[in-house]
């Protein structure tokens, strides 16, 4: 998946805005009904709609609960001290952070600090991903838990990890096949056409 596609998925997340206009309920094909909008009464809308309204100067975006310097600092410390991945406040924290801070940094107090902390958290988690992917491949683990990883993070190790695992599987499968074949044949130069292994022992 492209990061843009993941971003598209993340834009379905609901956030709170304060509209500056009045409007009836809007019926969306997916995601249900939104509104009604009353000026200066908070209402929850999908992220994509909030961004759009903000760009038209028709609303103020209220920062999500977790988007505060203190809370993020806490998350960052937890993430640093924990060996595994800690739970993120939002399934799409990176996307929300990027989009909201991108278009509405005037609505968010201390936007610059938040921006830096989010990036720090992202970096810590990325380095964890890289080392655990390495361990997974080296130790022939047959599965990996991806608890608490967000979609964007999982997507960052595609396609290299699945493809590498495919290759390892492929090499192993060939080896297994050869073993089965060699059990049926006593000598290397037997009549079986399938025997393509080279003469190693004798």
């Amino acid at each position: 998946m492209d990061p843009d596609e993941v971003e598209y998925l993340g834009e379905k997340q609901f956030i709170s805005i304060i509209p500056t206009f009045n409007s009836n309920t809007i019926h969306l094909i997916s995601g249900g009904d939104v509104g009604p909008f009353r000026a200066s009464i908070p209402v929850r809308v999908p992220l994509w709609m909030a961004i759009n309204l903000k760009q038209q100067q028709k609303c103020k975006i209220q920062q999500p609960d977790w988007m505060e310097v203190e809370k993020l600092e806490k998350i960052k410390e937890d993430e640093k001290s924990s060996r595994t991945f800690t739970e993120m406040p939002s399934e799409h924290y990176m996307i929300e952070g990027k989009l909201i801070l991108g278009c509405a940094s005037d609505d968010i107090p201390r936007a610059d600090e938040i921006r830096t902390i989010i990036k720090d958290i992202w970096d810590i988690r990325m380095s964890k991903i890289r080392s655990s992917v390495d361990t997974l491949v080296k130790n022939t683990g047959s599965y990996a838990g991806v608890d608490n990883l967000t979609i964007m993070e999982i997507n960052s190790i595609r396609p290299i990890l699945p493809h590498a695992l495919d290759q390892i599987y492929r090499i192993k499968a060939t080896r297994k096949q050869l073993r089965i074949q060699s059990q049926g044949t006593t000598t290397f130069l037997s009549n079986t056409r399938h025997s393509t292994s080279f003469n190693t022992a004798s």
Partner: peptide, 24 residues
Amino acid sequence: RDSYNARTKLNAWLIESGATIEAA
């Protein structure tokens, strides 16, 4: 090549749009 392309896309996504989320 595949993973390099994916990584380039991700990096482009991270820095695109006026306000970047970046390390200090």
